[in-house]
């Protein structure tokens, strides 16, 4: 069976001054449909670069990337925009909602750029998604009228709008308090249980513990790829895993 995501021998090299910096140094990774992956590592490990390339927000210097069976490593900005719109959902650390715009309109946005639904269908789907993430009755609220946790729920609903095969989350709880973080991670777990593929970047062990599979990176290389065959890990087990990987 083809993998949902398949990267082979990927390099991302930045020229900072005279020294080329290898943000990704020959990474290969596959992700299958329905997985919940946490990419871990300290800052500078290349995990954000990895997520940006996986999310088609950035292009690799070298290497191949098959997304859903299509080569996407060498595409024009316009083609990448279409791929992001149809195949990918994003959840950011700082939510990135449009200010002074209602939750409903924020959720509708991806289909506005796609134009698959008519106005009524789009509205109905956005309403359903907001209800799905627990924001029924707050459709007309603007981001300023919502708490951080609620804003991140809006962002998750938006990521799901175009039914993408995979959702990328970049430190989704980085700006949230503990209680909201737990709620958001429970929501991700539910989505994962429904079969949605999630790739998340985090450096927090307790957040990573919600994922089933753990990829630990350092200096642009994958140090450890634990597919979680032994079932769900506790925070301590994740910490142990990371410590071993980087030892």
């Amino acid at each position: 069976m083809a993998h949902l995501i398949e990267i082979r021998d990927m390099y991302k090299i930045y020229a900072i001054g005279d020294e080329p910096v290898h943000a990704l140094d020959g990474v290969s990774l596959t992700v299958d449909d329905g997985e919940f992956v946490a990419i871990m590592g300290s800052s500078g490990s290349g995990k954000s670069t990895m997520l940006n390339i996986l999310g088609c927000l950035d292009v690799p210097t070298k290497g191949s990337y098959l997304l859903d069976g299509i080569e996407v490593a060498r595409r024009t900005p316009t083609e990448l925009a279409h791929i992001r719109n149809r195949k990918l959902g994003f959840v950011f650390q700082n939510f990135n909602l449009l200010p002074r715009t209602s939750a409903l309109e924020n959720v509708e946005l991806p289909d506005l750029y796609r134009g698959r639904l008519n106005v009524r269908e789009r509205r109905r789907r956005a309403m359903e998604l907001l209800a799905r993430v627990g924001l029924r009755g707050r459709e007309r609220h603007t981001p300023a009228q919502l708490s951080g946790g609620q804003q991140q729920r809006v962002a998750i609903a938006r990521a799901l709008m175009n039914n993408p095969p995979v959702v990328f989350a970049d430190e989704p709880t980085g700006n949230l308090d503990t209680k909201s973080s737990i709620e958001i991670m429970n929501l991700f777990t539910e989505l994962s249980n429904e079969g949605i593929t999630i790739v998340m970047v985090t450096h927090e062990d307790d957040i990573a513990a919600y994922a089933k599979r753990h990829v630990v990176m350092r200096d642009g290389r994958v140090m450890r790829d634990d597919r979680g065959e032994g079932g769900r890990k506790t925070t301590e087990q994740v910490s142990q895993l990371v410590k071993e990987a980087l030892a």
Binding site: T78, N96, L98
Partner: peptide, 16 residues
């Protein structure tokens, strides 16, 4: 600029 980045990340093409 953040709004532009967000719009691009969810599928706005350079042309749009």
């Amino acid at each position: 600029i953040k709004e532009i980045g967000l719009r691009m990340s969810i599928g706005a093409t350079p042309l749009s």
